[in-house]
Simulated scan of single mutants.
Amino acid sequence: MNGRPIAAAGTALTTFLVVAVLVTELLSARIAFSAIVALPIGVVAGVIAGIATWVRLWSRPALRPVLLGGSAVGYALLVAAAASYAVPPARRFVSVWSALGFAAVCGVAVFAFVRLNPERFSR
């Protein structure tokens, strides 16, 4: 399986989410609409991380479990947000902490799977 596009897009998504949330929280005391500043910064950081994963990082086999595990975190957060939005009964179960826990479990599981089966992600 060619995991390069999956890792690049997932790393970009995870980086975007982490940077946007951190910058929003850091600026919230000083700027009322800190998300307006944080979202473009997150997009730029995500694009840089995705390009770096595609061009340089994927060629190092030792980094592939980390890249795919980190990518799974972004995908899992996206799934949790989509479930909370699209399935009204799920809204009372999906909180920030439950979504983060779900994402952490998914990231560790993917990391372990790729670490145990590196030949599946050799390209």
Rank of each mutant, 00 (worst) to 15 (best):
M1D: 11
P5C: 11
I6E: 01
A9F: 14
G10W: 03
T11W: 03
A12W: 01
V21W: 08
V21Q: 14
V23Y: 00
T24Y: 00
L26Y: 06
L26H: 08
A29I: 00
R30A: 15
I31D: 01
F33R: 13
A35Y: 08
I36A: 10
I36Y: 04
V37Q: 02
L39G: 06
P40C: 11
P40L: 11
P40Q: 09
V44I: 14
G46R: 03
G46M: 06
V47S: 09
A49R: 10
A49T: 01
G50W: 03
G50N: 10
G50F: 10
I51T: 06
A52D: 10
W54P: 00
V55D: 09
R56A: 14
S59Y: 03
R60E: 08
P61C: 04
A62W: 02
V66L: 15
A72T: 02
A72E: 03
V73F: 15
G74N: 08
A80P: 04
A80Y: 03
A80E: 08
A82C: 04
Y85I: 00
A90E: 02
R92M: 13
F93T: 00
V96Y: 12
W97K: 05
S98A: 11
S98T: 15
L100F: 12
L100P: 01
A104G: 11
C106G: 07
G107C: 13
A109T: 13
F111D: 03
F111V: 04
V114W: 01
R115N: 15
R115T: 13
N117D: 05
E119N: 12
R120D: 04
F121G: 03
F121S: 02
